[in-house]
């Protein structure tokens, strides 16, 4: 089972036992066109009847949501940057450097709508001991609320800090990619509401091609830092079902720069535990073999 998980599945739904699964779907969130309107946050709350998070003023630019949580399944991050951080002079082509210097005034604003990544190798799903988390026929990752017993294991297991326990409810909650809407042939609420097509929904393979073209265009225009995040099936989680076009390092948006699902190391972990268990048994034998007293 672990071996299956390690070989970069192209079709997680089929691997999870869906015989005639539709093609894998996902989100491509292009942050370069996000205007920070938060229509996605609102649409998600409305459609999924997600309870409110309380009214907080966080003092973090226009972001008063803070991050993804049990009650926030889309989160728009706002980063105000006084000036473009220096372009890496080694990797960036010279003309891009010049273009960046020209195109950037003394301020830029990064906005990004974050969401559950619906990982190919999902840590949350792997560790869930009740089977509440499951892989849908669309290759998304969903919690069954009638099964979850609130053990909480999925929460530290997610390399992106997405899934969370809902206070007063006890169970774990996160984005379902609008499983109910997908079943009816509709797009998720956030993608439908997004006015700039920053959130695009569709067949994952097509979205990946589209995203490659968009990065190429942006780079031609001198945005040398534009890059895709989570689009690579060879990364530590086997690629994300929801991936992003970013304009700065992932950690600037609160994303891990190199996430790796715990399951990758699980065989090595059990091996070390096995050795320790053997040492423990040996210690017990030695304790009793050591004499009459």
């Amino acid at each position: 089972m672990t071996d299956d998980l390690l070989d970069g599945l192209s079709d997680p739904a089929r691997a999870a036992g869906w015989a005639d699964a539709p093609p894998r779907v996902g989100f491509f969130t292009d942050t370069s066109v996000c205007i920070g309107c938060k229509a996605c946050e609102v649409a998600c709350k409305e459609w999924n009847a997600v309870p409110d998070d309380g009214f907080d003023l966080l003092g973090t630019s226009y972001d008063n949501t803070g991050g993804l949580s049990a009650n926030s399944w889309r989160h728009v991050a706002f980063v105000e940057q006084p000036a473009l951080p220096p372009v890496d002079p080694v990797s960036a082509p010279v003309d891009a450097l010049a273009a960046a210097a020209e195109a950037t005034p003394d301020f830029r604003w990064l906005m990004m709508s974050d969401v559950c990544k619906h990982c190919t190798h999902a840590g949350c799903l792997d560790v869930c001991p009740t089977g509440a988390l499951f892989r849908t026929e669309f290759s998304t990752v969903v919690v069954q609320e009638d099964i979850c017993n609130g053990c909480g294991y999925c929460i530290p297991a997610c390399p992106y800090g997405v899934i969370d326990q809902r206070a007063g409810d006890g169970r774990a909650w996160k984005c379902t990619m609008c499983y109910d809407r997908l079943g009816d042939g509709l797009s998720p609420a956030c993608a439908t509401a997004c006015p700039t097509e920053s959130i695009q929904f569709g067949e994952l393979s097509r979205l990946r091609e589209k995203a490659e073209r968009r990065v190429a265009t942006l780079r031609e225009q001198g945005v040398s830092r534009a890059h895709l995040y989570g689009a690579d099936p060879d990364d530590g989680v086997g690629g994300d079902g929801a991936f992003f076009l970013l304009l700065d390092d992932p950690e600037v948006y609160g994303l891990p720069p190199d996430p790796v699902v715990g399951t990758r190391d699980l065989p090595a972990m059990w091996k070390r535990a096995g050795l320790a268990a053997l040492a423990m048994a040996a210690a017990a034998v030695v304790s009793f073999a050591g004499g009459r007293r």
């Binding site: 966080l58 803070g66 997405v162 899934i163």
Partner: peptide, 9 residues
């Protein structure tokens, strides 16, 4: 980082 907020939960 993003305002010093945790990346993982």
């Amino acid at each position: 980082s993003y305002y010093g907020r945790p990346v993982v939960k």
